[in-house]
Computed example of a mutant assay.
Amino acid sequence: MKEENGSEFTVLENKNIGRNFSAFRKLRDKKALEVADYLGMSEANYTKYERGENKITIDLIQKVAEFLKVDPLQIVSSQPGHVIENLTGSPVAIQTNSTFQTTNEKQNEMMLTLMQEIVEMNKALRKMIEDKK
Rank of each mutant, 00 (worst) to 15 (best):
E85I: 04
E13N: 06
K26D: 09
E117L: 13
I17F: 06
T88L: 15
I17V: 13
I56H: 05
L112E: 14
M115E: 07
L87E: 15
G52K: 00
L60Y: 02
V119W: 04
L12I: 10
L39T: 04
N122P: 00
I58P: 08
G89Q: 02
S78P: 04
I84F: 00
K30R: 12
N14V: 00
K31D: 06
N14T: 04
K26G: 00
E105K: 07
S98H: 10
A23M: 11
Q107A: 11
G81H: 02
Q74Y: 11
S78G: 05
V70G: 00
T47R: 15
I118C: 13
A65W: 01
P91Q: 03
N122S: 11
Y49W: 05
A44Y: 01
L27G: 09
I94K: 13
S90G: 07
G18D: 05
F21G: 07
P91E: 01
A36W: 01
L33Q: 13
A124I: 14
P91N: 03
Q101M: 08
Q95P: 00
K15D: 05
N104G: 08
E43K: 13
S98W: 09
V35H: 03
F9H: 09
N14D: 08
E117S: 13
M121I: 13
K30Y: 10
R28S: 09
F21W: 07
V76M: 09
N86H: 07
I118D: 10
V11D: 03
V35G: 03
L114W: 06
A65N: 04
K48V: 01
F21I: 08
F21K: 03
D29G: 01
G52T: 07
K31M: 09
M111K: 03
S22M: 12
M110D: 12
Q116S: 11
A23T: 12
A44W: 02
L68A: 00
A124T: 13
L27Y: 06
R25F: 05
T10D: 11
T47D: 06
N45P: 00
